[in-house]
Design a binder for these strands. Structure first.
Length: 578
RNA sequence: CGGGGUGUAGCGCAGUUUGGUAGCGCAACUGGUUUGGGACCAGUGGGCCGCGGGUUCAAAUCCUGCCACCCCGACCA
């Protein structure tokens, strides 16, 4: 393809909307354009890379026996009501009505549609297992779109669904996908790590997230250098402090603690370690219509951090159905007092106690009375919880829940996630097959997603895939393999040499971009670096002698080569790496 | 949804405090000189100053309502 004939434009200056390298470079390279917040257009060069990623995904899916289908984005509300997720999904779902007032959504995912398809076609154990996938736009009306395509409202996702006879079959499908995903992300040039993850709105029993390691990522993962621990921070279990069984309970005492509303203030005032205090966190919960339907008080050791995901899982409600409470409003109903709430004297309020508190003795907590705290508070004797559960966030340096070593944290971008759904969808939607004994059985399902557009962007954020001058595409996903930078189009010798290189490489299956624009050489070099084509062949002054310059985008050094050498070397490296 | 910020030419910005009818750089276009790392000279075109309402002889500028976008948080396969 001749660059002079392409719809191609690069930006010299950084657009204000972008902050992280991948977003800045994609915009500057003219590979994407924003349509509206969280919605992007893929320009020719960017779209080529998207298609390369998609094809890597297709190859790996097909290799595991999955078949591609295509379901359209508009999905009827009935299916979602059948699974129970029409209400559960919340404001993120993009809902719409047709002219007859029937309800639909733009698919944020497609468990319902796939389950519906399979249940009507599959009736016998002989038809299982099955694995179907698709690559399509997904719609999620994100509260805050961010970082270009890292968190957008419309994005390209590969989603597939496995249908098995039983749990063992599901395990097998899951393992296949785990393997396929590892291959996909390796081929895409990502530094990634599979980590255990929470199942969120999708549900199910077991899940791994594939996280591209990158400082700009929104996921935080916890891992351990000494054992296999690798989990999202939401998922990671936390080790309770050792129970103080041998410590004697001291008499409960109310103390005057004027103006000490925060844990830091109380601890300083009473000269206590924060580990001897209990922190209160107050929440209000909402029903499906968005009306308040209850209060929740969470108690956790003063130095700990609440893990919202664990709380929501314990309450078995969706995340959007809970929010920090207006303490003043709540005080009338429950007796809490802003800054001085403790687990005693509360009423009409669900009390949730972190799992390590019952084992700890003589703690300090609010007295539900302004300017007062209790000291020597003990579980069982002085207070009780309606629920006792691990609500702690595993922090960097905390004890590893598996081996006890200090835990490490890293940031990353979630590029894929796999779930064991079990019968979560087949049960409400009645996806049933007849087994060998002519008995009805539920189909066991798994679902597996890859954010194609997110992967596209995450690739660039890998440190090895960009530098100050632009993108450095891995060969496997580069929009073109080779760029011919012709210094002086119209020069007879250069035209001849560039044309020959173009033709021979193209014949060999190499994708070549020919920069034949009437621009100064500097502009072409800058653009070539910016768009990140892996191999550059510069046809310049010495073209008449049959000599060109050969340079890899990722290396600094350039080398003069004969035309034939350059062609041979380009073919070799492209075939090796593509 | 809470907090903060910004909307002026395709992109990046100044002008707003103190009202007087819009400017700079890049990009584009024309001509010329250039041609191996974002050239130079001369010239040209391009703006409902986010949108509505108000104050005023006069509004990019003051008042007011709305909208959009970005950042932090909340939230999120």
């Amino acid at each position: 393809m001749k660059l002079s004939q392409m719809h191609f434009k690069t930006l010299r200056e950084v657009p204000t909307e972008a902050e992280i390298p991948s977003h800045i470079l994609l915009l500057r390279a003219g590979m994407i354009k924003k349509t509206v917040a969280g919605v992007y257009t893929y320009m020719p060069m960017g779209w080529r890379t998207i298609r390369k990623i998609e094809n890597i995904v297709r190859e790996e899916m097909d290799a595991k026996g999955a078949e591609e289908i295509y379901t359209q984005s508009v999905q009827p509300a009935e299916l979602w009501k059948e699974s129970g997720r029409w209400d559960a999904y919340g404001p993120e779902m993009w809902r719409l009505k047709d002219r007859n007032d029937r309800e639909f959504c733009l698919g944020p995912t497609a468990e319902e549609v796939f389950t519906d398809i399979v249940k009507s076609d599959v009736t016998s154990h002989r038809q299982l297992p099955r694995m179907l996938y698709q690559i399509s736009d997904k719609y999620r009306d994100e509260a805050r779109p961010r970082y270009g395509m890292m968190r957008s409202r419309v994005f390209i996702m590969k989603d597939n669904y496995s249908f098995d006879k039983d749990a063992a079959g599901l395990d097998e499908s899951y393992d296949k996908m785990y393997d396929a995903y590892s291959k996909v992300f390796t081929r895409c040039g990502l530094n990634f790590r599979p980590v255990e993850a929470d199942t969120g709105a999708i549900g199910g029993s077991n899940s791994h997230e594939f996280t591209a390691l990158c400082e700009y990522g929104e996921s935080e993962i916890a891992y351990c250098d000494h054992c296999d621990l690798a989990a999202t921070v939401e998922k990671a279990a936390c080790v309770d402090a050792a129970p103080q069984d041998d410590v004697e309970m001291l008499p409960l005492e109310k103390v005057y603690t004027p103006g000490t509303k925060t844990i830091d203030e109380v601890a300083a005032f009473l000269k206590l370690d924060k580990k001897q205090t209990i922190k209160a966190l107050l929440f209000v919960t909402y029903d499906a219509e968005g009306n308040e339907n209850g209060y929740v008080a969470v108690f956790i050791r003063g130095d700990r951090e609440l893990n919202m995901t664990k709380l929501v899982n314990a309450l078995n409600i969706p995340e959007y159905a809970i929010a920090f409470a207006d303490e003043e409003k709540m005080s009338a109903a429950t007796g809490c007092v802003g800054g001085f709430t403790g687990p005693m004297h509360l009423h009409d309020c669900k009390i949730i106690v972190d799992s390590e508190l019952p084992g700890l003795k003589n703690l300090c907590a609010g007295a539900c009375e302004t300017d007062h705290h209790y000291i020597n508070m003990n579980y069982g004797r002085d207070y009780k919880g309606d629920m006792i559960v691990d609500l702690k966030t595993l922090k960097e340096g905390d004890e590893c829940p598996i081996c006890g070593a200090p835990v490490r944290h890293a940031r990353g971008v979630e590029v894929g996630q796999i779930f064991k759904l079990g019968t979560k969808y087949s049960e409400p939607m009645k996806a049933i097959y007849k087994d060998e004994n002519q008995k009805d059985q539920l189909i066991w399902m798994g679902c597996y997603g890859i954010g194609i557009s997110r992967t596209f962007q995450a690739i660039i954020d890998m440190p090895q895939n960009h530098d100050d001058n632009g993108i450095i595409w891995p060969m496997s996903v580069a929009p073109y393999h080779v760029i011919i930078t012709q210094v002086k189009p119209g020069d007879e010798a250069q035209d001849e040499v560039a044309g020959r290189i173009y033709n021979e490489l193209t014949k060999a299956g190499v994708e070549v971009l020919w920069d034949d624009r009437d621009e100064r050489p500097g502009v072409k070099f800058k653009d070539a670096d910016l768009i990140g084509i892996p191999v550059r062949i510069t046809v310049g002054k010495r073209a008449s002698e049959g000599v060109v310059e050969y340079k890899l985008r990722r290396d600094a050094d350039k080398r003069e080569k004969t035309v034939d050498e350059a062609i041979a070397d380009a073919i070799e490296i492209v075939n090796k790496e593509k």
